[in-house]
Structure formats: structure tokens, C-alpha cells
């Protein structure tokens, strides 16, 4: 399988590490190998935060160098990824929190990730809405594995919320795909 690089980015407290962890767990269920890394500021809330996944690494290097799938939930995270986005990559930015997406030869889509989380009942579920969008675009793993991973990873009282958030994120992609040809897997 060829290598795939994914980044969840935004500001601290948006649950980006958790989103990556759920995806890593889903991939593990399918026997895929992952490397997951993170970068954050010393504060627990606010400041640049990102969580990266390298799936089925070919070169053995565990950090992202050319991102295939990128989620940006806050404008302050844009600059950090600029120059690391692969040509043709799928970049999803939040319509409320990001005004100026990163420039370059990639496919940018603007989706209401935070708004969807709000509708689900908790703005902090934007991470898992994003995860739904990533899986919807990339088909990187089966929905079943992802739902199982949510059960395995999230505290039981938040499982239902996260399952709903994931489904809504996934649906955002299929609903918008006809209008937005960017919402397709990276070749």
C-alpha cells in the first residue's frame, strides 16, 4: 500500500490529537501501520496544535513531509502547513474559522465543520466531524472500523455524540461532492 500523510490542525483544545488517535486505532483494526506525531504549545488551550499521521510509511520516516489530507480548523494553523502540502492534496478548511486557506496546487474545500459540531450538540466535536470528512473523502478505512475505534477510544458517555459527529462529517462530504469536485480521494 502506498504511503498516506494526514494532518489535523487548528488551535489547542480542539481535540485534534483525539481525532488522529481514533483514526490510528481504526487503521490498526485493519492491520495498517501508522506513525502518529503531534505538536502543541505549552498551554492546554489555544496556540497552534497539530496531529499528524503517516500511514503505511514507505521510507520509514515517521513525520509528515508532503501532506495528502489536511484539515484546518483555525486560521492560525494555516502557515505551519504551507510548503508541506502535496500537489493535488485534499485540503478541508472550516468555513467560520479560516478566512485565507493555504495557497498552492491542491484541492481546497470549505466545509461547515464547527457549525455541524454545534448542531450535533457540542462545538468540541468538530474534531470528529473533521474525521468523518477525511474518511468520507479518502475512504482510507471502512466506516465500520472507524465506528468501532470511536467505541474503543472515547469515554462511554461521549460515544453517542461522537458517533453522530462522525456520521455528520461523513455526510457533509457525500452531500457536497456533486457541487465540489475537490471532495475526492487524492490519487
Amino acid at each position: 500500500m502506498s504511503e498516506i500523510q494526514i494532518r489535523f490542525s487548528g488551535s489547542g483544545g480542539q481535540g485534534l490529537q483525539l481525532a488522529a488517535k481514533i483514526l490510528a486505532s481504526a487503521l490498526a483494526l485493519e492491520g495498517r501501520s501508522i506513525s502518529m506525531s503531534q505538536s502543541y504549545e505549552p498551554t492546554s488551550r489555544g496556540g497552534l496544535s497539530r496531529s499528524d499521521l503517516v500511514v503505511d510509511s514507505s521510507a520509514g520516516y515517521p513525520l509528515v513531509t508532503e501532506i495528502d489530507y489536511l484539515i484546518i480548523l483555525d486560521q492560525l494553523a494555516v502557515e505551519n502547513s504551507t510548503g508541506m502540502i502535496k500537489s493535488g492534496a485534499a485540503v478541508i478548511v472550516d468555513n467560520e474559522r479560516v478566512d485565507a486557506p493555504p495557497p498552492g496546487e491542491h484541492k481546497t474545500s470549505t466545509l461547515p465543520l464547527v457549525q455541524t459540531a454545534r448542531e450535533v450538540g457540542n462545538i468540541r466535536a468538530a474534531n470528529v466531524v473533521s474525521l468523518g470528512a477525511i474518511v468520507g473523502i479518502s475512504n482510507i478505512c471502512a466506516q465500520k472500523s472507524l465506528l468501532q475505534a470511536i467505541h474503543d477510544t472515547v469515554p462511554s458517555r461521549f460515544v453517542d455524540l461522537n458517533l453522530e459527529a462522525f456520521k455528520r462529517g461523513y455526510a457533509l462530504v457525500s452531500a457536497n461532492r456533486e457541487e465540489d469536485p475537490h471532495l475526492t480521494a487524492v490519487s
Binding site: K21, A24, A28, R32, S33, I34, S35, M36, S37, Q38, P62, L63
Partner: peptide
Amino acid sequence: EVIGHLVES
């Protein structure tokens, strides 16, 4: 720090 916080299979 990279290896300390890195998650790998």
C-alpha cells in the same frame, strides 16, 4: 521529544 511522543504500530 519526537520519539517520546511518537505513536507507532
